[in-house]
Amino acid sequence: MDNTEKIKFVIDDKVCYAEPGQTILEAAKSNGVYIPSLCYIEGVKPPGSCRICNVRVNNRNLIACTTPVAEGMIIDNDIPELNELRKAIVEMLFVSGNHFCPGCEKSGNCELQALAYRFQMMVPRFPYEFPEKGVNATSKYIFHDRNRCIMCKRCIGKVMKDEKHVFAYNSRGGEHLHVVMDEELASQLTEEEATEAMDICPVGAILKKERGYYSPIGHRKYDKESIGSDIEKK
């Protein structure tokens, strides 16, 4: 398909082309523009739950992972106003969970932490909550720490066993809403499936047991290069 059949749009002053049906986030990604996001993961219908990927079109904030790109769209993405808003969301996620980075096995590979690095978060502007949502260690290979959960719904959509969802919301909403693990299904997961589940979680809420700190400091995913730099380099 040549560019005449594609959708033409502009993001951060860069002229880009997208396939029909692509979301703003996917289209930007295939044009080498990184839009920070947390809940988005390939292969799952985006829940649009984290709101970090919000971009500005026509002076309106839209969620890039759920909005299809349209012909002639002029999109602001990497601007101070939006980055400040995204940083505030990251800070809010940090205070609403127990994110003890020095004591977390996901540290260095954690996407929430990587976004904090990208936005140079020195301290959250909100008071810490230190929630007590509980930990589920019943599964053989999985350690589920709800205190670190950012409710992105990635695991709900993607961690499956025999076509059944291993993780789910416990209710429809309210302050007691959290993600619960089906203990029976989780205990059937193989070691490889548990490792995959850990990689699906953007934070350290789902950990593979007995894996520990498997790569040394300096060799982890976000030690040297910021999240999104792989997309921007293309």
Binding site: F94, N98, F100, G103, V123, Y128, F130, E132, N147
Partner: peptide, 12 residues
């Protein structure tokens, strides 16, 4: 100093 750190793991 910033968030309580490892000692704050006793907070729960």
């Amino acid at each position: 100093a910033i968030m309580g750190g490892l000692p704050a793991m006793r907070n729960g």
